[in-house]
């Protein structure tokens, strides 16, 4: 096993030892079961679940990402004195955290669905939700790591990471809406698709809503979205955008970390 895999393994152990990742999974197990059993309608409960996932997964990833980075400084310093490549230490810690968050998220939702015993079509929708949730986990964890490495001060780093989450989850939509209202007289279809691509949360929301055939709810741009995101090419572009949201911060993070003093 190479050193990267070892670091992933040990950060993974370290994280699983504390109760909060477990609690995170249990929360999704509870909320998914509740929604599936009490609403009766699968699509409705999936949309409710979607809203919870889109708000909470980025938030929790941001919070855990910053906390883990600042709190594992000891672990990092210990590893830095060992014969391991620097980038492997940090990449390993990132993967360890991301994988454990993804696992408990997917297991929580997945277990609830298995007990509910849905149809094949339903499971494909749910899989899409799990995929988007996992990508959002990876995105917001790396953004949190990047912010943490840039700011020595814990409180400052934490604040800025939360601000980024707030922008993506709430403020972006508000600005987007204002933009649509102000430039109402212009053809905005293409622009709105373009703007959506820059926000991973919005992108995930649309990817899932379109699959549920509730695109009509998206209003007058909905048709454009459907035309764009519904095609193979559109789906590919959106997933590329989401993956870029992981890769670009990751490159910046590794570069920043390789010049950092401890």
């Amino acid at each position: 096993m190479n050193s990267l895999a070892k670091i992933v393994k040990y950060s993974f152990y370290d994280i699983l030892r504390s109760w909060w990742v477990l609690l995170y999974g249990l929360f999704f197990l509870a909320i998914t079961s509740t929604l599936l059993y009490f609403s009766g309608d699968f699509t409705k409960s999936l949309v409710s679940l979607l809203n919870v996932v889109l708000l909470l997964v980025p938030l929790i990833s941001t919070v855990f990402g910053t906390m883990y980075f600042y709190n594992s400084r000891e672990f990092t310093e210990l590893l830095l004195a060992q014969p391991i490549k620097r980038s492997h230490i940090f990449l390993g810690q990132y993967l360890g955290l991301t994988i454990s968050l993804m696992l408990s998220f997917c297991l929580g939702i997945g277990l609830a669905f298995v007990v509910y015993a849905g149809t094949l079509e339903q499971s494909s929708h749910l899989f899409m939700l799990m995929l988007c949730g996992s990508l959002l986990t990876a995105i917001f964890t790396i953004v949190a790591f990047l912010v943490s490495v840039c700011f020595e001060d814990k409180i400052k780093g934490f604040g800025i990471a939360i601000l980024i989450w707030l922008c993506a989850a709430v403020i972006y939509d508000g600005l987007f809406l204002a933009f649509l209202v102000v430039f109402n007289d212009y053809p905005l279809e293409k622009a709105s698709v373009g703007i959506t691509l820059f926000n991973p949360i919005d992108l995930s929301r649309i990817l899932i809503l379109l699959r549920l055939e509730t695109a009509a709810l998206l209003g007058y741009t909905g048709a454009v979205f459907e035309k764009f995101f519904g095609t193979m090419q559109g789906t590919l572009i959106s997933f590329t955008a989401l993956v870029l949201w992981i890769i670009l911060p990751l490159i910046l993070f590794i570069r920043k970390v390789s010049h950092k003093d401890f």
Binding site: Y10, Y13, D14, S18, R73, E77
Partner: peptide
Amino acid sequence: MPQIARFPENL
């Protein structure tokens, strides 16, 4: 041997 003993907490 560092100045302050620092380890991963849960190990």
